[in-house]
Computed example of a mutant assay.
Amino acid sequence: MAAMEDVLEVYHRPYDETRPLVCLDEASKQLIGETVVPIPAAPGRLERFDHEYVRNGTANLFMVTMPLLGWRAVHVTERRTALDFAEVVRWLVEEVHEEAEKVVLVMDNLNTHKIASLYEAFPPERARRIAGKLEIHHTPKHGSWLNMAEIELSVLARQCLDRRIESSEELKREVAAWEEDRNERMVGIRWQFTTADARIKLHRLYPATQ
């Protein structure tokens, strides 16, 4: 409960450009190729695909979102490693929010989502400098629904990824188009669940006290 209330408190802070709120999550996408060229759509007929396909491996998607500003960025990588995670965090700290005092980062407890990953990727002085600009808040175990980046991933899956995509290059193009459109419209997330709500609706999960 402590981790949940910690994240909920962060979500209800007013916007502060010196301490921007960033949510981070990741997901994989199976790359699927066609064995037969699909039949294009025609008036009164949908595009047709053969039931057979070829697996072209998987790609990983890092979702980074600033829900208070209606902004997100998706990084497509070949793998899900500590080095890939560290590079996304470095980009956030050194490029996107170079002038910020701290980057308030909400993420889950995936094994690579640790400060230690920075030390695997960069010299210790640089890793320490990046870590020093982070204020990290982990969602609780089995509490990934508290991460607003997961909401963005769900929207991405419905609007962009719910079909066969053959290669990483195609995936990057499609994701970039989705990202650009959503950012231009500044689609935000209206988070309304509060600590008070949690104490009422999830009271059974709290330890009993005398």
Rank of each mutant, 00 (worst) to 15 (best):
H12P: 03
I136M: 12
T18W: 10
V7G: 05
V22H: 11
P123Y: 10
V187M: 07
R80D: 12
R158A: 06
V103M: 13
E152H: 12
A149Y: 05
A157D: 06
F62S: 00
P124V: 11
H203F: 10
T194A: 11
V64K: 09
A127N: 04
A100V: 14
A100Q: 04
G70C: 06
R45A: 11
A100M: 07
V76D: 02
H97D: 07
E95I: 15
P40L: 15
L161F: 05
H142Q: 03
K172A: 11
R90E: 13
K102A: 13
A196G: 01
H113R: 00
E17C: 14
M4Q: 10
E94Y: 12
A116D: 09
R126A: 07
E166L: 14
H138C: 01
P43S: 12
L46W: 10
E180D: 12
E52I: 10
A131K: 10
S28F: 09
A127I: 00
D25S: 02
Y206F: 02
I32F: 09
I151R: 07
V36E: 10
T81F: 09
H97K: 10
A27H: 03
E47Y: 07
A86W: 01
G70S: 02
D181I: 08
L92Y: 05
E52S: 15
R55D: 06
V96K: 13
N56C: 01
P140C: 02
D6H: 02
G44Y: 04
Q30R: 13
Y119W: 12
V64D: 03
A59K: 03
D6Y: 01
V10T: 08
L202K: 02
A208S: 04
A177I: 10
Q30I: 15
D162H: 13
A86P: 06
A131V: 05
V96E: 07
Y206S: 02
E179R: 15
A3G: 05
R164P: 03
G44I: 11
N109M: 00
R80V: 03
E9I: 06
W191N: 08
V175M: 11
R90V: 08
R48G: 07
P40D: 09
R79S: 04
E52Q: 14
P43V: 09
E78F: 08
F85A: 05
L146P: 05
R55K: 06
M1Q: 04
